[in-house]
């Protein structure tokens, strides 16, 4: 067994354990590459049966249009039940990252929407595709990450987690976030996508796209409000390394238009994956703070 086989076997064990021990699990599906791998692992875990829990997408309405198209086609093709939840009240109030700042915007459209979406479904376990190599506070996260009645994470008081024996016990109102990809790295994910032929959003592949070039950053123009006076879009050969909301996700210059080229690019890359995610850098320790409040 190579490292991908071992990671796969470990993740499937986790997914089955959750399906067996929780009353009402749900899989958070963000449409990104990690979610795509996680869903494939869930398909494998229950084959020849179907995935015995729904997929939940927290839609901020600022996702790339290609993501939404992909999401709907993908969910239908595998016969999964897809639930979409949006903090519509905040959208109606005009929440966007430029107007209210990235921290507040994430707080309302991602964290609040996620907690409301979980409460609405009465879910006691929520799978997420986060990996420990993504960010330093995630390196400390358990596979089963306990959340209290308010969805909060207490990093200093986590349950000890030994072997692959997981403690699934929660009281009413509490839940566990489960991270079956904890031990995967970005390169593992790409190698697995390549090996398994897992469909992914075309935004990951390089092609000429309209971008505003602002210093070293490439800002995709999906939302009108992103254009500052005097700016205009130009075509740049680029791709997305990580997918989030279009106003807060930068592209990288790249020629990698196939999986193999992406894997080669990954082996050489010297910058981290989330560098182009604005929300990770809005303050020191920002991921840890967001996670404490219930962020995914």
């Amino acid at each position: 067994m190579d490292h991908l086989d071992l990671l796969e076997a470990e993740s499937i064990q986790i997914i089955r354990e959750v399906a067996a021990e929780f009353q009402n699990p749900v899989m958070l599906y963000s449409i990104g590459k990690d979610s795509s791998v996680m869903v494939r692992l869930a398909q494998k875990a229950f084959f020849p049966g179907k995935i015995p829990f729904p997929l939940l997408h927290i839609d901020t309405t600022y996702k790339f249009r290609e993501m939404i198209t992909f999401r709907d086609e993908f969910a239908a093709s595998i016969g999964a039940k897809l639930i979409v939840h949006t903090n519509q009240a905040a959208i109606d109030d005009g929440a966007n990252p430029l107007r209210i700042g990235t921290q507040k915007c994430c707080g309302l459209l991602k964290t609040r929407a996620l907690l409301d979406g979980l409460a609405a479904g009465g879910y006691d376990a929520a799978f997420g595709g986060a990996r420990r190599d993504e960010e330093k506070s995630r390196a400390k996260e358990r596979v089963y990450s306990f959340r209290d009645e308010f969805g909060q994470w207490d990093p200093k008081n986590q349950r000890p987690e030994l072997w692959n024996v997981y403690n699934a016990r929660v009281d009413k109102g509490q839940h566990i976030r489960v991270f079956p990809l904890s031990n995967w790295t970005e390169l593992d994910v790409w190698q697995y996508i390549g090996r398994e032929n897992i469909p992914i959003v075309p935004l990951y592949y390089a092609k000429p796209r309209p971008m505003v070039v602002r210093g070293a950053s490439l800002i995709p123009i999906e939302q009108e409000f992103m254009l500052q006076p005097g700016e205009k879009a130009e075509m740049v050969m680029c791709r997305m390394r990580s997918l989030g909301c279009s106003p807060c996700t930068g592209a990288i210059r790249s020629e990698a238009d196939t999986i193999d080229k992406i894997i080669d690019e990954m082996k050489l890359v010297r910058r981290s994956e989330r560098e182009n995610r604005v929300i990770d850098h809005d303050q020191e320790g920002s991921m840890e703070i967001k996670k404490r409040e219930g962020y995914f």
Binding site: K140, K156, S182
Partner: peptide, 10 residues
């Protein structure tokens, strides 16, 4: 260091 941290390299 308070807690276990997991690190990855290959």
């Amino acid at each position: 260091t308070i807690d276990v941290a997991y690190r990855y390299f290959s």
